[in-house]
């Protein structure tokens, strides 16, 4: 057993400095398209290539609705005029429903319990959420804890488009939570149904069923974006925008 102790000590601290400092390591985020300007043909091609309709057009200006972006990179690769790309990860934003659950209040600023519900997620979102519990991200240092029962949860983390069979469990989990409570939708599927919904078996995201307070876009959102979302939920970070701003000039 002593070997494990030595091994652990030798490994040193791997945990990210975020949110104290921005994480500078590469590969922590796939990035998101920002905006583009182009000729009529280029603009048309970009809008046409986007499989989920995330790219919105006004004149020759293109902006992105992050609720829909699934990181297919079709507006970046093999395109004549690729979209701008932002490699950040502070993507979490308040939704228009924010405040529907009336927020957590300052008493919860330093520590919250999180219950995760898989509403039909593909596994990548779950894997990224699991990383939060692991050395590189270690959410415990920020006062975030996972709980096995919604009865103790302050924040409900939902990934996936909410499949038909998961509607009831999700609703029951939400109802079982004590107030005050927050709902955080993680990933494009949870925000808009992504590539799966709406369909005969999937909803167009969590907000169809229960009010969502914090949205974390991405497919999947990298762990740092989810941490940003949790920090936003307890008002320790400010909200990003769910739509990219236009290109200036």
């Amino acid at each position: 057993m002593s070997k494990w102790v030595i091994k652990g000590l030798r490994t040193g601290i791997k945990t990210t400095q975020y949110p104290r400092k921005m994480e500078t390591a590469s590969g922590v985020s796939p990035g998101l398209p920002t905006a583009a300007k182009g000729t009529e043909k280029e603009v048309q091609e970009l809008v046409f290539n986007c499989p989920t309709g995330a790219i919105e057009r006004s004149g020759n200006q293109l902006t992105v609705d992050y609720n829909y972006c699934i990181h297919c990179f079709r507006c970046k690769r093999g395109s004549q005029s690729p979209m701008g790309w932002d490699y950040g990860y502070e993507w979490a934003a308040n939704t228009k429903d924010s405040g529907a659950n009336r927020g957590l209040g300052s008493a919860f600023n330093r520590s919250i319990n999180i219950r995760f519900v898989d509403g039909g997620a593909c596994g990548a979102c779950i894997s990224e959420i699991e990383q939060l519990n692991k050395p590189y991200y270690n959410m415990h240092r920020l006062g975030f804890f996972a709980t096995p029962t919604p009865r103790e949860a302050d924040v409900l983390l939902v990934a996936g488009p909410v499949t038909d069979h998961m509607r009831l469990p999700l609703k029951k989990a939400y109802d079982a939570m004590p107030t005050p409570k927050l709902v955080m939708a993680v990933g494009a599927c949870a925000l808009s149904g992504g590539i799966f919904g709406p369909s005969f078996m999937s909803d167009a995201g969590v907000s169809e069923l229960i009010p969502v307070d914090v949205a974390v876009p991405g497919c999947p959102p990298p762990p740092l974006a989810i941490i940003h979302g949790l920090l936003l939920a307890v008002k320790r970070k400010s909200s990003a925008l769910l739509t990219s701003s236009e290109v200036r000039g």
């Binding site: 519900v117 029962t149 009831l168 469990p169 029951k172 989990a173 109802d175």
Partner: peptide, 12 residues
């Protein structure tokens, strides 16, 4: 006080 059923893992 809000009374809710016992948490059952989300089954019907």
């Amino acid at each position: 006080v809000r009374r809710a059923a016992a948490w059952d893992g989300g089954i019907r």
